[in-house]
Structures are given as structure tokens and as C-alpha cells.
Design a binder for these strands. Structure first.
Lengths: 192, 192
DNA sequence: CGTCACATTGATGCCTCTCAAAGCTTGTGG
DNA sequence: CCACAAGCTTTGAGAGGCATCAATGTGACG
């Protein structure tokens, strides 16, 4: 079931009855658990293709707010339907579990990344994770978004990129960033 | 199947044939993906009771190193066995998926936490997440470990606690930390 | 051609990390 | 029972780096 939300609109709010899980098709969604002391702690954003609010299948209510940052399009899988489907169809269930396991890894990886304090180091590591086998990567979206994803201000990102370029560790072409020899020793390719 | 590992011993290494998933019973395990440029980026640690290496069920090989930081005891669920069990038993499968969904939330929460730069704020937020309904929390393990879990040096943690105490937001008793009125407005209790 | 958002670089300040040192707690052995 | 060792706890001083504020350049789109 396709549903669209305008920028600023809420898909659901904390405490709402959990009516289904979502897959983001296009746009940007921010999952923003309400903090006890009022301040908003945003960040974990859903990106296109990702499943989110999976926990709602196992819970009666949502545990955080989901806000559309831009006009967005999502697939809504009604809870009752999904549950029935999954419980009946072992194949589907397996796929679903596999997806969650995959996301778990992704989040762990992100967590590691945040542990790197140095902006250039963090950027470099991010690039390693995103570059293809040839050591190249074309950012999807703006660099500003990229900065946000890896938890840096955009200024810090630009400076880090400049530093890395000056050190000869990366090259920047039109709409593309490449790892240079020093850091690109045929990244191991045995993901998940 | 219970297995024990001494401090410093590796449960498995990146690239090893995936032979099963684990649940930590006691001790501390560090999951440490090898970074391309040699530096170690540790952090995502398994804590007692947690399942880890779930992704190995959906993959032929492990994707990171697992190192015992202290003498540890784990439950090893052989892959073939688990897979068969899960695929046959819908009930078990559902429990397994629920556990992963739960872990997903936990990791997202941690990720939000790391986004808070200010040490006092991060500590406060961590306390909110850990305190019981009465606003109290007894740290399991040392404060040093707590500091590591929330991504601060222990010095920063001690200073943050001192600051919060001075501001009258927390109270520290023997082996217990309490949130004070200002920040403790009956934390919403509708966890999953 | 004007507007708007991204991209880039500069200057400043705060805050956490780091290195250091001292007090405290716990356990061990004589 | 005491003395010593080891690790946690706590506070101090200094430095580096990222966030913040600010300004300019650049590209896309109407």
C-alpha cells in the first residue's frame, strides 16, 4: 500500500497504535524518539529502500515519532496482514529476518564509525565502506546529506575532504570521489 | 552448547566459515570489524544476554572478529541446527525475529545517544534510558565500563556526573544514581 | 536575472581527549 | 591483622579539533 507524506508531516507518533511497518521508497524520514527532557535527538534516518518501524510488529504501540523531512513516499505494510503472511509463509519470514540481520550489521557499522573522532579518519572510513571495487564512489544526494549521515557538520566534512585531497589519499572529480592507492588495497569483498 | 573463552581469545575471525550464532552468558565480547587501513575500530560490544553474529545465519562467512575481552562464557547455536529449527518452527522463528527487532531499536537508541556531543547531556540521557520507574539506577559493573558503553572517556564521565550533581539534576548514593525531580517526570513506561 | 540551496573557506571558542597525579576500595599474602 | 598491589575513582592542567558563526563562490531553476 503506497502512501505519500508531505514534508513536515508525521507518519506516526510515539504511543500511536502500531498499525504496520514501512518501507521508504523516496524521500527522507527521521525517526525521532522523544527525549524525556524535551530536547529532540534526531539522527537515525531511514533511507530509500529501507524498512523501518519493524519493531511495531512485536509491539502494540510505536516507540518514536516518524517525521517526513521532505515529501516522501512509503510502502505501508499493514500489521495484521504482515503478521499473518509471515507466520504462514516460512520463505517470507526468512527473508524478513535476513533483512533485519542485515540492518543490524549496518547499524553496528555506523556505530563504529561514530566512534572515530577525527573527521578526516571518519570520512576516509566512510568512503572505504561506500566505494565500489574500483575505489570510486558517486555520492547519492548532496554532500551536506552525507555529512549528516556520518555525523559531521558539513563544514567539517568539506575540510576533511580538502585535507584528504591535500594528503593525496583521495581524488575528487565531478560528482565522484576516488580512493587513491595509499588507502585502496583491493578492499576485501566478502560482505554480509 | 556452552563454550568458554579466555580473555584475549578469539571466538571467530573475519572470513571464517560461519558455523553458528552466539549468545553471551557472561563476560565481555568485542566485535571488531577490521578496518581497511589497519586501525582497529572496536566499540560495538556484546553484553550478557545478548545474541550476536546473527547475520552469520544468512551468510557463509563471518564479517568481523569477535574477541573475548575477559574470560567469557557463551552459548553457541550451530548454524545448521538453528536454521533447520527456525525454518520448521514458526514459533521459534517469530521469537528470533522479535529479538532482532528489539536489538535494532537498541542500536538506534545508542546511535542517537552518540549524537549528543555534550557529556553531561549524554550522560543524563543515558540515565533516563536506564533508570527504573522510580528514577533510580544501580550501575552493573564499574563506571569506567559505563563510560565506555556510552562512548566517553571515564574522566569525562566523572566530570559530567559531578556537573549534574552540582546542578541538582542527579543524586549519587552508594552504588546508585538517582534522577532528581527536575528531570524525572514519571518517564513514560510503554516500552515494547 | 534573481533567488535559493549547496559548496567552500575563514576565524573563534568551547569541550572533550590526553597526560598526570592523588585518594579510595578491594583482595591477597605474609 | 596489617601491608602492599592493582584497579577504580576523582580532580587538575593543557592542547587540539570540531562546532559555530560568518562570508563568499557556485550551480540550478524559474
Amino acid at each position: 500500500m503506497v502512501r505519500r507524506f508531505a514534508a513536515g508531516e508525521a507518519l506516526f507518533r510515539k504511543g500511536d497504535h502500531a498499525f504496520g511497518i514501512f518501507r521508504l521508497v523516496a524521500g527522507r524520514i527521521r525517526l525521532a524518539p522523544v527525549t524525556p527532557d524535551g530536547a529532540e535527538v534526531p539522527v537515525p534516518m531511514a533511507r530509500p529502500g529501507e524498512l523501518f518501524a519493524e519493531a511495531s510488529l512485536f509491539s502494540a504501540r510505536y516507540h518514536c515519532d516518524a517525521l517526513a523531512l521532505t515529501d516522501s513516499e512509503v510502502l505501508l505494510y499493514p500489521k495484521a496482514e504482515v503478521v499473518q503472511q509471515l507466520k504462514k509463509n516460512e520463505e517470507e519470514m526468512w527473508k524478513f529476518a535476513g533483512e533485519m540481520a542485515h540492518r543490524l550489521q549496518g547499524l553496528r557499522t555506523q556505530l563504529e564509525l561514530r566512534q572515530i573522532r577525527s573527521a578526516p579518519q571518519r570520512v576516509l572510513q566512510s568512503l572505504h565502506l561506500r566505494c565500489d571495487a574500483t575505489g570510486r564512489w558517486a555520492p547519492e544526494g548532496t554532500l551536506k546529506q552525507f555529512a549528516e549521515e556520518i555525523g559531521l557538520t558539513h563544514e567539517a566534512l568539506y575540510r576533511a575532504l580538502a585535507t584528504l585531497k591535500k594528503e593525496g589519499r583521495i581524488r575528487r572529480d565531478k560528482d565522484q570521489i576516488s580512493l587513491l592507492a595509499k588507502d585502496f588495497k583491493a578492499l576485501d569483498k566478502d560482505e554480509k
